[in-house]
């Protein structure tokens, strides 16, 4: 990535996404912090530069689509959407309130900008394949971006969808594995080791790239490189809870329930970094 201005812009955006995510979760006092923060850099690249969309017309058929199959990372995606003007920033504070547009897990019928309903792990993968195929049949040049959790990738459906993606060369769909090493009960390696993601996706017929998933420049380059005749899978080596030291250092950080002052401490850290980035 050679565009220093864009790089700075995206790094700032990633930090803003993290701040907005923490503010969103603070409103309820608990939620899926770890997996929301690990994908903040990818969300910054996609919504900050790569994806084609119109916040005033969120259902615009020609838009690019994001399927966050690890639907519990909703708060992270909501943060990016609010910052891009899909809905007012203040609405982030309605997370999980009765009648809210922002449920824990992504819901395409509730939240402007959420392209698919997810949360039952694995299901987003097939849905993303369907969106990409549907766009092709409709003659659109839209692209679909699919984020899959590493813990989620134990679901068999993920591999059914992966096999289909590669076998039928669904090249307008890009896969991302958020390899943040942990799931609800602990380390993925301990619970049901998924082995070498890159080798697996390559064996399935993908162009598989492994990179630092918390590095904006690496992500940008991998996402924007020209697509050949194989669909691309990007294995993102990430840190669960990335960007907030205390969350990164907490073993059980899938979902955290902490007092408001702790959230404030996390916000202080993020805001201090933002100040330093100026």
């Amino acid at each position: 990535m050679t565009d220093e201005k864009l790089l700075k812009e995206l790094n700032d955006f990633a930090l803003d996404i993290r701040i907005a995510t923490v503010e969103c979760l603070k409103s309820r006092g608990f939620g899926h912090i770890g997996g929301s923060l690990s994908i903040a850099d990818l969300l910054a690249v996609l919504y900050g530069s790569v994806m084609r969309y119109d916040p005033k017309n969120p259902k615009w058929p020609e838009r690019d689509k994001l399927v966050c199959s690890k639907g519990h990372a909703g708060p992270g995606v909501y943060a990016a959407l609010a910052l891009k003007g899909f809905f007012p920033y203040e609405e982030l504070k309605t997370l999980n309130e009765p009648g809210t547009n922002l449920p824990s897990h992504c819901d395409r019928n509730k939240t402007p900008g959420i392209d698919m309903t997810t949360g039952s792990l694995g299901q987003g993968t097939s849905l993303a394949v369907g969106i990409a195929l549907g766009d092709k049949l409709k003659g659109r040049d839209s692209r679909t971006y699919l984020i899959v959790g590493d813990g989620e990738a134990v679901e068999g459906l993920v591999w059914e969808a992966a096999m289909f993606t590669a076998a039928t060369k669904v090249t307008n769909l890009m896969w991302f594995i958020d390899w943040n090493k942990k799931q609800l009960d602990g380390y993925t390696k301990v619970i049901n080791d998924h082995g070498d993601f890159r080798a697996k996706f390559e064996a399935f017929g993908f162009e598989a790239i492994q990179l630092d998933g918390n590095d904006i420049a690496q992500l940008y380059d991998a996402v924007t490189a020209p697509i050949g005749d194989k669909p691309r899978a990007i294995i993102m080596d990430t840190v669960k809870g990335k960007g907030v030291t205390e969350v990164e250092e907490t073993f059980s950080n899938h979902s955290m329930n902490v007092p408001a002052e702790v959230f404030d401490r996390w916000l202080d850290e993020l805001r201090a970094r933002k100040e330093a980035q100026r």
Binding site: P61, T125, S126, G130, I131, G134, K138, L157, F164
Partner: peptide
């Protein structure tokens, strides 16, 4: 033809429906 993967097929069909099919 999605092959012998019925759950994936219904997921794909659902995604296609969201794209207007």
């Amino acid at each position: 033809n999605c092959g012998i993967a019925e759950a994936n097929m219904v997921g794909i069909a659902s995604g296609m429906a969201s794209a207007g099919m």
